[in-house]
Design a protein around this nucleic acid. Structure first.
Lengths: 123, 123
DNA sequence: TCCATACGTCGAGAATATCCGACATATACG
DNA sequence: CGTATATGTCGGATATTCTCGACGTATGGA
């Protein structure tokens, strides 16, 4: 989690529609939702939603997967963990040894397995 | 941590200067830094910095305290914990009972004492 | 009171974000 | 191929944010 990546993620989540979309996708883990149904549920035109989905994707917060004619989006929980870890690292003010076990513990939240323990404990 | 509060915080942190200011203040916990020195260190005119500090304050991420002619700013680590908790709650997709102990554990990061355990475990 | 220091507020120009109609692309079916 | 469905992209009109010069406010000392 770089500073630029964090700014991208914060910027993506600082918009009401996008935050709602993200939480909607988190609720629908691990199945995800197609773009059209997301737009319908939130009540936003499909092209506007497409832009928001692109921003969330570029921020690494969600993931696109083509399924026949639909494109199913899923929340990337690793990004959530990474962002929480970025905040926690800030919270520790460089004393990351205090927070590393807590960050590692965040992988329990819905993620099937932690992909790289070094990443979160690197500080 | 309300949705609107989260959007305010995300919006405040989605700007390079403000994120830098926030991290600088976290590094200087618990003493804080006066507004002028923050502006000098980041290399931004004092009035521009004043606007950024006001936005961070309005988002609940930092705190102002008058000391003679200077106004000393400090990072509000409780807000960091609240924001991390908001993300973690999302991460759990409503199954907050899984994450409540983790959120409670975040209070270990620099915060002297947890002000209200109900707040973080309420879900 | 007068001055100096430290910080905040106002205003406007520039940059950026948001939104949606119109059009383009991709897949499935016949 | 043509048609229908599902989604992405382009364009510009509107709204918001960012920045900084100029001025206002608060504190301390003579």
């Amino acid at each position: 989690m770089d500073t630029n990546e964090a700014i991208l993620a914060f910027s993506a989540l600082s918009q009401a529609t996008r935050l709602e979309v993200f939480r909607l996708l988190v609720e629908h883990e691990p199945d995800g939702l197609p773009a059209g149904e997301i737009a319908r549920r939130i009540g936003v035109p499909h092209n506007t939603m497409s832009t928001h989905l692109a921003i969330l994707t570029r921020a690494g917060l969600i993931d696109a997967d083509r399924r026949s004619r639909s494109i199913v989006y899923r929340a990337r929980l690793e990004a959530v963990r990474g962002l929480a870890g970025f905040l926690v690292k800030d919270c520790c003010g460089g004393r990351s040894e205090l927070c590393a076990p807590l960050i590692a513990g965040l992988s329990l939240c819905g993620a099937p397995q932690a992909p790289s323990p070094r990443e979160v404990a690197h500080g």
